Computed example of a mutant assay.
Amino acid sequence: MSQETRQGYRHAALLFDSDEDFLAQALPFLQAGLSAGEAGLVVCQEAHNDLLARALPDDAHVLVLPRDAVYTRAAHVGVTYERLVHRLLAEGARGTRLVSEPAYGSEPQAWETWADFESVSNVTLSALRLSSVCGYDVRRLSASMLHDVQRAHPHLLTEDGPVPSGAYVAPADLLGTSPPRPDPLEATPPSLDLEGITDRAGVARARGEVRAVVAAACPDTVVGEEFTGAVAEVVTNAFHYGGPPVHVRVWATSSRLLCTVTDQGSGADLLFAGYSRGDLDAERSGAGLWLARQTCDRLDAYRTPGGFTVRLSSAVPPAAPGAEGARARAGAPDGGARGARLRAAELLGRVD
């Protein structure tokens, strides 16, 4: 598999039911890559990070990272691995072997978002010289979740190496172009419903009203500011590249944020767009979609009888006791959409 890794992205699932089972599959995979001149990258739960670190030589070319630092949002995971692989290749590695354990949360929406990204990554990370193994404890997976894992991974890792997954479905066939399932919040009255946005002044007013509604539902949260920034990017794109009138609806609660932006354009196939730094040209004309994916949990784009719709959503975590306001935590001089855009722009700069 090391020769294949040097030619592009290889993606396998590691299904285990004990620490011993995990180590028996993951360790030979890493060792084979290291022997071939590849670098190792380990991003697992702390106990498994320690297991692998102790089993490898002290001088092994391996980076071990805390999982929580990488698995924040699905789109962020892809950008982080893209950046790390480029760094390791620049240091002389012939390829990279990654062993990870995805952190996908407990809510059904969070699992669906992660399972979709696992599939999408087969396309969006395809240019990377990366051989990736995603570890899943089968004791924590329902039958349907296990099926999702098998459908999203072209290979399954065994003690003898990777084997084809008979359940694998190509991303375009698995996710298709049909609209996603309705979000439960969409069955409730929206917190904000703005129709007939036809000019730049209307776009500016929409941004301000979205900011106010989100801030009222979850004040002083980084998630709220970032979501506001993501919506601003999408509304701007809808006005400039879609077609007026633009229709914006927002559902804002203390635990979840949801927004749909519909324009009258023909739309574009955005299934695989906006995930990779490589999607941006020299003028960064694709930065809006990239930034939107980085600053919300999920972004779907699809055609409906009413036009072309982009739907964004984010979960709002419970406030920690004694937590400070968003500006103090983020150290940002500006709030709302501008503050979120500044932080997203910093993310963009890190992968240059």
Rank of each mutant, 00 (worst) to 15 (best):
R6S: 13
G8Y: 08
R10A: 05
R10P: 00
H11N: 14
D17V: 03
Q25K: 15
L41H: 12
H48E: 09
H48N: 07
A55F: 10
V64H: 06
P66K: 11
D68S: 15
V70I: 12
R73P: 04
V79M: 08
L84C: 05
L84D: 01
A93Q: 06
T96F: 02
R97S: 06
S100T: 10
E112P: 00
A115N: 03
S119N: 04
S121Q: 09
V123H: 06
L130D: 02
Y136W: 15
D137H: 07
L141P: 02
M145E: 15
L156R: 03
S165K: 04
S165A: 14
S178G: 11
P182S: 12
P182L: 07
T188W: 08
D193E: 10
L194K: 10
E195S: 10
I197Y: 02
A206C: 11
G208S: 15
E209F: 09
C218E: 02
P219H: 15
D220V: 02
V222T: 08
E225D: 13
E225S: 14
V234M: 12
V235G: 02
T236Y: 04
A238D: 03
F239V: 07
P244G: 06
P245Q: 15
V246T: 04
W251M: 05
T253N: 07
R256D: 05
D269A: 14
L271G: 00
T295N: 13
G306Y: 08
F308H: 07
T309R: 09
S314N: 04
V316I: 14
V316N: 00
E324K: 12
A328P: 04
D334Y: 12
G336K: 03
A337D: 13
G339Q: 12
